[in-house]
Amino acid sequence: MKDGIIEVRDLVKTFSLEDVQVHALKGLSLTIRRGEYVSIMGTSGSGKSTLMNILGCLDHPTSGTYLLDGTAVSGLNRTQLAGIRNEKIGFVFQGFNLLSRTTALENVELPLLYDRRHRIGNPKKAAEEALVRVGLGERLKHEPNQLSGGQQQRVAIARALVTQPSIILADEPTGNLDSRTTQEILALFQKVNADGMTLVMVTHDPDVARYAERIVELRDGLVLRDEAVIDRCKAVLELPPAAKENLS
């Protein structure tokens, strides 16, 4: 068995509203191995985003432990968490979350500007390479409003990749995209995963989930089902020739 890059034990997350308490996670445990490609499924409100935000160090669990790449995340302060987010995690959002009126290149460069250890020597060059890798080598100077949804999401993926993180977390990355651009993103993910990157992707679409090698299904803040994908889809094969060229 390969070592777990993510290990969460008995994760509890409770949101306290004015008079009610919402138990989003109720003692969830999960291990994700290095190099794995995992889909997280579940109905709306089952706790997928809550789990992803904790995995992405954007939020603290109410209780439970979280080991990320050997580091105990609980107990880190805000500044240390920022460091972890910068170095170890690439987050991809459903709504892309790019800076508006900022070029693709600058958007991708941004996380490197916050890298205090300067692990990557030449931020501009690295950003350019990441954009080429996602097939946007021709769109460096374009701003988000000049790009399609699929292209924007690819910029966001390039931004996640550029820091060479241990893991990419994507919360419904294709939720806002049509089926064709969804294929583009899925193909990109499979390629990135084939290069060795660990990937966790949230989706509520069973067809999308089948592109991963393992599906974890949540219900009411607990793992309902956790199994390998038998009939795994290969996204690249379904792409039109032009897009395939772009990705190779």
Partner: peptide
């Protein structure tokens, strides 16, 4: 606020 959120998410420290 959203921009700040994005910056924090990709690793900006509060001090940054």
């Amino acid at each position: 606020t959203r921009e700040i959120g994005i910056r924090l998410a990709i690793g900006a420290r509060p001090l940054d």
